[in-house]
């Protein structure tokens, strides 16, 4: 009897797919989704108010809305909502043990969890961006066409970073909040190349690169000199590397880590 039942196991791939679906469902039905919707709603109202006034250029749209509201706040929060929940919430609810004792190899568990979080985070950031740009009217739509790759890659990198937090810390959400709201801002506004330690720096580099056609450039006192932008392709390469590295780091740590609590 034992052999017949065991022989009906179709293999780790279908289990992995099922875990992916399960994580997706659970994450989507969680409180984070509501918070994200609420934040996006608030932002939308502001954008509608902004776009009601006289004609605007894409440059103004990018500087006043996209960078100020979307990139510095909504983007990290969307990624954080799903990234840290990936494994830390399972750990918090003590259900991680069911995954750890299942015959799925650990890297596959991480892969499934990670792709579920990534899918949701990408859906939110992309949908959020589209909504914000659409509400921004014509200049918004123009900006959308050139900006989406920057946001796509930033989302991936942010998510991998927060997944890493999720694997490493029990209170990943709190740490990630402190990171996204405080450390990113702090480092991002430092002079010199210190700001290259923040993910948002590369996002902005990509945006300035892509938006150069509209005349978008670092604003504020000192402007471009203080910002020390990297060229677009370099920033993009760094984002790829960073995302990949963080993913591998998370995968590796999750594969060898003992969750003994």
């Amino acid at each position: 009897m034992s052999t017949t039942i065991t022989s009906r196991i179709t293999g780790p791939l279908s289990a992995c797919l099922h875990l992916f679906g399960l994580s997706l469902r659970r994450l989507f039905r969680s409180r984070q989704t509501m918070i994200c919707a609420l934040l996006l709603g608030l932002a939308s109202i502001a954008v509608v108010a902004w776009s009601m006034r006289r004609e605007r250029s894409p440059e103004e749209f990018i500087e006043e809305i996209f960078l100020a509201v979307y990139v510095s706040f909504l983007l990290p929060i969307f990624c954080l909502s799903y990234g840290t929940a990936g494994i830390a919430s399972d750990r918090e609810e003590q259900t991680l043990v069911y995954l750890l004792v299942s015959p799925l190899p650990r890297p596959l568990i991480f892969l499934a969890k990670c792709s579920a979080s990534l899918l949701l985070a990408l859906a939110w950031t992309m949908a959020g961006m589209s909504v914000v740009c659409w509400l921004g009217g014509l200049p918004g739509m123009e900006a959308l066409h050139v900006l989406w790759p920057a946001i796509l890659w930033s989302t991936v990198t942010y998510l991998m970073l927060f997944m890493l937090f999720s694997v490493m810390f029990r209170r990943a959400t709190m740490i990630a909040l402190a990171y996204a709201l405080f450390i990113e801002t702090l480092i991002g506004n430092m002079p010199g190349i210190a700001k290259r330690l923040a993910v948002s720096f590369y996002t902005r580099c990509l945006i300035f690169d892509a938006g150069s056609a509209f005349g978008v450039s670092p604003s504020g006192p000192g402007g471009a000199e203080l910002f020390v932008a990297l060229p677009g392709p370099t920033a993009q390469a760094i984002l790829y590397l960073l995302g990949g590295g963080l993913f591998l780091g998370g995968l590796l740590i999750f594969s060898v880590r003992e969750y003994s609590d």
């Binding site: 934040l39 608030l42 932002a43 502001a46 954008v47 108010a49 902004w50 776009s51 009601m52 006034r53 006043e64 809305i65 100020a68 509201v69 510095s72 706040f73």
Partner: peptide, 12 residues
């Protein structure tokens, strides 16, 4: 968030 929105609206 609200300060960011406020800045945006002020400029708008």
């Amino acid at each position: 968030m609200i300060p960011a929105l406020a800045g945006l609206l002020r400029r708008a």
